[in-house]
């Protein structure tokens, strides 16, 4: 038995400790917004924030996330500038990769709110989207970065 803190709430977990965080979040704790896409850390669909940094939950064990702050898309407030920009710009198509994409974007914007489009594109380069929402992702990120900059970096 060990504990995981997800979106501010502590959960008891009795999976074997080497289980990837992805499966514990999805199957044991019901956070199905965290998506399986490849299992090898290549696509980014399983991205969560760990202590504010975007991490691939398929590639770390659940046990190693003990004591850390895990944030899934549900943990971002509904009026988060990134979520609002995503809706305003009508970014998602199928939407499967989007929770991971949004969490990665949150980390990228927070790390460098003044990033150029080119820098943002580089920082988003390891998240895959088969529908091809890329152009809208960048546009929504620029808008959200502007808003987050105004507020001095909302979480």
């Amino acid at each position: 038995m060990f504990k995981l803190k997800v979106n501010g709430k502590v959960h008891q977990v009795d999976s074997s400790p080497e289980t990837p965080l992805l499966w514990v979040l999805r199957d044991d704790l019901g956070f199905t917004s965290v998506k399986y896409g490849c299992g090898i850390g290549e696509c980014g669909s399983c991205t969560v924030l760990i202590n504010g940094k975007a991490e691939r939950s398929c590639s770390i064990t659940a046990e190693s996330a003990q004591g850390l702050e895990i944030t899934t898309i549900e943990g971002l407030p509904e009026d988060h500038p990134v979520k609002r920009a995503w809706i305003a710009e009508q970014v998602p198509q199928c939407g499967y990769c989007q929770p991971g994409m949004i969490l990665q974007a949150v980390d990228v914007i927070k790390s460098n709110p003044k990033a150029s489009k080119r820098e943002m594109a580089q920082a988003m380069d390891d998240v895959m989207c088969r529908c091809g929402t890329h152009a809208r992702v960048l546009k929504a990120m620029s808008i959200a970065a502007g808003k987050m900059g105004d507020k001095g970096g909302a979480t």
Partner: peptide, 14 residues
């Protein structure tokens, strides 16, 4: 379909 996709609430088959 977009608001629930952005909220992470969409239940896909998977």
């Amino acid at each position: 379909d977009i608001p629930e996709k952005v909220a992470g609430k969409t239940v896909f088959g998977f």
